[in-house]
Amino acid sequence: MTDLTGKVAVVTGSARGIGKAVALRYASLGARVVVNYFGDDQVAGSTVAECRAAGGEAIAVKADVSKVEDIERLYRSTREQFGRIDIVVANAGFEIVDQPVLEATEEQFDRIFAVNTKGAFFTLQKGAKYVADGGRLILIGSSSTASPVPGTGLYSSSKMAARQLVRVLAAEMIERSVTVNTILPAPTDGAGVFTDLAQDAPEHEFFARIRFGQRLGRPDDVADAAEYFAGDLASYVSGQSLLLSGGAIV
């Protein structure tokens, strides 16, 4: 079992969905967790309470990852509260799907790239600066960067830049023994555009035909991978992308 006792983990966009699952998992393994969020204070507070109930210390820090000054404040607040940073999970982002490239607008482009590209870049860049030697940097990417999917031109291209950044940053962090890796979740029930997916939605039937367990992915599947990358078993793994698709070809 992974032991994160004494480790400090910053998880962006972790009030709900995949980020919440990762934060809860780390807390259950003994980590002190910083729940970053941008929206609802009450939802973030509830996640903090769940992290504490799971066995870890936790605080919430409101910060917009599309603003570098907010990212700096997020890390500053973490160090002021806990004294160090050991794990950073760059998860914050949002999706625009079923959007043909020919219909994409400049406003949509600016919005999604501000969070998914700029936000991820500076979360990882500043995280690399402040993380302790031997630490972990983890990007939550998207399976849509693994193969072209119609309707995801804006989304997948906004995610691809950070995926390449992980490979470069991994090489640059070797001397400090900091690993840098990416998790590529396929469509996940309870996250992103599938956050409120009804149990009788046709997506369930479709994915049941092509996935292990005949189901959509779940946030805990991503938390499993995030646990691995954060733990000792992954200490010699860096610059890698782990596709979580349940065996589906994407």
Rank of each mutant, 00 (worst) to 15 (best):
A225D: 02
I140S: 03
G19C: 13
V8E: 02
Y236K: 02
G231P: 10
V65P: 04
A191M: 11
D196F: 02
L233V: 13
R79Q: 13
A223C: 01
L124M: 14
A161V: 14
V237C: 03
V43H: 12
D110S: 13
R163S: 14
V178I: 15
A120N: 09
F229V: 10
P219L: 12
P100K: 02
I85C: 15
L242C: 06
V8C: 04
S245Y: 05
F82C: 01
V166P: 05
S144L: 14
R167K: 15
L139N: 11
G239K: 09
S245T: 13
N116M: 06
Y155R: 09
H204G: 00
P187S: 06
T179E: 06
R211S: 14
T47R: 00
S177L: 00
G141E: 08
T105L: 00
G141N: 11
S144G: 06
D200F: 00
I138R: 02
D98H: 12
G119R: 13
E103A: 07
D133C: 03
V178A: 04
S142M: 02
S143R: 14
D86R: 10
D133F: 01
Q42D: 12
S238V: 05
R79V: 14
K62C: 09
E227N: 10
G231K: 01
G13S: 04
S158K: 07
R111E: 09
L102W: 15
V222H: 08
D189Y: 15
L216W: 13
A53L: 02
A198G: 11
I138K: 00
G190V: 01
R32S: 11
I174M: 12
L184N: 13
R218H: 06
K62A: 13
V22K: 01
R211T: 15
G213V: 10
P150H: 06
V43E: 13
L139Y: 11
P187H: 06
D86E: 01
L124F: 08
T47D: 06
P148S: 04
V222T: 12
E205R: 10
E227P: 08
K67T: 00
G153L: 01
V43N: 09
